[in-house]
Design a protein around this nucleic acid. Structure first.
Lengths: 343, 343
DNA sequence: GTTTAAACTTTACGCGTGTAAAATAAATTA
DNA sequence: TAATTTATTTTACACGCGTAAAGTTTAAAC
C-alpha cells in the first residue's frame, strides 16, 4: 500500500508516470486519452487515493458539472419522491445534483437560487412555489442560468416546463366519479399558492359543464403547506354543519383529502363506494400515503417518471447547447386514475 | 445603475475604494473591519453586484464553511422534518448546509460521504442507516472529518451522538398501555436495519419484565424502507389469521403502525380505546402523518428539536475548538407520550 | 498635540487546476 | 520502412482569492 501522500495532481502525475495535463484531460473525460495511458492512470488510482480538488477544478470553469434541483417543500413526500427520481437521473448523466428545498417560502426560494448562483451550476431544475414565488427574481435567475421548470409553471420563465395535464386528469376523475355515482363537489383552498390548483379548479368547472351538471365548490380558508390540517379542520366543520351539496367530494390534492378522510372518520361518516356509505372522497396526485388511508384514497397518479426524465433531458440538452431556441417548450403528461376504496 | 462589470475582488476593490486584502477580510468577517470602511464596502455592494467566487475562496482554506447533513432517507417525512430543522440551525450559525439522503442504501451512504469529502466540509452531521451501514467506511470518514452522529448510533463512530432514549420512551408507552388496558404485544421486523429498533425491542422486554408480564413479540419478515407496506401486508395476515396474543399492539415505529392501521380498517377491526373496540394500536416517533390516521395514532414524540439543536451545537464546538477531545459524548433525550384515538 | 495601537494599503506569493502552444513520441496507415 | 496522424510531454500562464510582511494612515487615549 502506498504510504506516499498525494497532495495534488502533480504528485499524482509523478506516481502514475503520466504528465499532469494528460491527467487533467483524463479527469475531464476518461475517454479522451489513449487506452494504454488510461489503464496506467486507473492503476495508479487504485494504488493511490487521489481526487482532484473540486474547488480548484471549478475555479476557472465557466460552467460546472453541478445541476441545481429546487423543490418547494421536501417535507412533502410527494416532492421528496420526485426529487429522488430526478437526483438519480442527474447522477446517471454524470452530473452532480444539488438538492434544495424552499420550505414553502418565497424568500427561501430566492435564497436557494442565490446560493445556486454562487455555485455556478450548469443548469437548474426548478419546481417553483407558484403564485407565492417572487416571479421577477426567478425570471431573472432563469435568464442567467439555463433553467427548466417542472411541476408548477410560471409563464415564460425558464426554457421549458414539464408537468401534468390537470385538465385531462381532473376531467378523467370527474367523469369516473359521475359515472360510478354522482358528480362531485370540489373541495379546495380559497386562495391556493400553487398554479396547478387553479388549473384544477378550471378543469373541474369544465368537466362539470361537459356533463351538463352544476359545479359546486367548497372553498376554505387556509394558507401555508399544512394541507392535511386544513383538510381535517375544515372537513370536520363542513361535516358537522351537514351542508354538503353532494356526497361525493373531489379534493384539489391528496393532502387535503387525507385530512378530510380523518375528519370523516372522526365524524363517523363511512367513506367508500358501497350502498351503506355516507361519503365518497377522491384526491389528486397519488401521494405516497394515499394507499394507506382508511379507506385507500382514490386519486390521480401523476406521471412523474416522465416529468422527471423529460425535465432532466431538457436541461441536459440546454447544457450541451443543442438548444434550438425555438421557443419555450411546455409539455403536459396525462394522469392515471388510481381506484381505491374511498370513491 | 452600474453598467460596469465586476469580475473579481480586485475590480470590486477598485470601485469601492478599498484595497483588495481588506475586502477579503470583510467577506471573511464583516466585523473585523473598521465601521467606516464597512459602510463603504456595503454601499459599493448595493451599487455593484459582486460576490466572491466560492471556489476560489475555498481552494486554499483548510476548513470551508460547509456542513454536511446526511440522513438515511429523505422520502421519510420524519427525516425530512429533522433535516429541515437542522438546516435552519446551520444557516443560523453562519454555515452552509449540504443536505444528502442515503436513500436507504449503504452504498449511497458511502457515496454521500465520499462526495462530502471532496467538498472539504468543516464538519458533518450524520444520521447513519445503522446495521446496514458500511461501518468501517463511515468510521474512517469520521476520523478524517469532524462528525457528529444523530438519530442512530454507531458505536465509537464520530465525536458525539444525540438521539432518543428508547428505554425511557418505550417504557413510558408500555406502562401507559398496560395501565389503560392490557399489556401490549410488540410488532416489529425480524431483522431491522435501525439500531433504535433493537433498543426498542430490548426496552419492550425490560418494561414487560418490570410489569411482571410475559413479553410477546410479533416479528415479521420484510426489508427495506417500505414500512407501511410491511405493516399493512403483515398486519392483514395476522388479523386474518386471528392469532393475536393481545388486543393491544405496540409497533416498533409509526410507519409500521400506519400500515397496520390500514390493515385493521380493511379487516373491519375497530381500533381505539372504547369498550366496543377490537384493537389498540400504538407507534413510536410521532410521524408527521400520525395525527391523520384513522383513528389518530397514539405514539411517542421524539424530542428532535433538542436532538437537532444539540447536534448542531456539538459540531460547531468541534469546528471552533479543534482540541476538544474529552471523549465521545452520548446524549439521549426523553420521548413524550402523545395520546390519540388509536390506543 | 503627541503617543500608540489598530486598521489599512501595497506588494508579493501561493493554492490546485485548466489550458494553450510547441516539441516530441507513439500509433496508424500506406 | 516511411509518412502521417494522433496522443503526450514540456513549458508557461491564467484563474480568483487567502494571506503574510512591511510600510502608512487613522482613530483613540493620554
Amino acid at each position: 500500500m502506498a504510504v506516499q501522500k498525494i497532495k495534488n495532481m502533480e504528485d499524482f502525475a509523478a506516481v502514475s508516470g503520466i504528465s499532469r495535463p494528460t491527467i487533467s484531460k483524463y479527469f475531464n473525460d476518461p475517454g479522451s486519452v489513449r487506452q494504454t495511458t488510461r489503464v496506467k492512470i486507473e492503476e495508479a488510482l487504485e494504488r493511490f487515493d487521489y481526487r482532484p480538488n473540486i474547488y480548484a477544478v471549478n475555479q476557472n470553469r465557466r460552467r460546472t458539472k453541478n445541476i441545481g434541483l429546487v423543490v418547494p417543500n421536501l417535507t412533502d413526500p410527494f416532492f421528496a419522491a420526485i426529487a429522488r427520481t430526478i437526483e438519480g437521473l442527474i447522477v446517471e448523466a454524470g452530473f452532480n445534483p444539488l438538492l434544495l428545498s424552499s420550505h414553502g417560502g418565497p424568500d427561501q426560494e430566492v435564497a436557494n437560487l442565490d446560493s445556486l448562483r454562487s455555485i455556478k451550476p450548469a443548469g437548474v431544475l426548478l419546481a417553483p412555489l407558484g403564485r407565492a414565488s417572487h416571479v421577477d427574481d426567478v425570471a431573472e435567475f432563469a435568464n442567467q442560468i439555463p433553467t427548466v421548470l417542472f411541476d408548477a409553471n410560471l409563464d415564460g420563465v425558464g426554457e421549458a416546463f414539464f408537468g401534468s395535464d390537470n385538465m385531462q386528469s381532473i376531467g378523467l376523475i370527474v367523469e369516473y366519479l359521475s359515472r360510478s355515482g354522482e358528480p362531485p363537489v370540489f373541495f379546495e383552498l380559497e386562495n391556493p399558492i400553487n398554479p396547478n390548483a387553479f388549473r384544477r379548479r378550471a378543469a373541474y368547472a369544465a368537466a362539470m359543464e361537459r356533463l351538463a351538471q352544476p359545479a359546486h365548490f367548497m372553498r376554505v380558508e387556509g394558507s401555508g403547506w399544512d394541507f392535511e390540517e386544513i383538510g381535517y379542520q375544515e372537513g370536520k366543520r363542513i361535516l358537522q354543519a351537514g351542508a354538503l351539496p353532494s356526497r361525493t367530494i373531489l379534493c384539489s390534492n391528496d393532502r387535503l383529502a387525507i385530512g378530510f378522510l380523518a375528519a370523516a372518520f372522526e365524524c363517523d361518516a363511512k367513506v367508500g363506494l358501497g350502498e351503506d356509505c355516507d361519503l365518497r372522497i377522491a384526491g389528486h396526485d397519488d401521494h405516497p400515503f394515499a394507499r394507506y388511508t382508511c379507506p385507500g384514497l382514490t386519486t390521480i397518479s401523476q406521471d412523474y417518471g416522465s416529468i422527471g426524465a423529460r425535465s432532466v433531458d431538457a436541461i441536459l440538452k440546454l447544457i450541451e447547447g443543442e438548444t434550438d431556441k425555438s421557443g419555450r417548450e411546455v409539455t403536459l403528461f396525462d394522469g392515471k386514475l388510481v381506484m381505491r376504496g374511498s370513491a
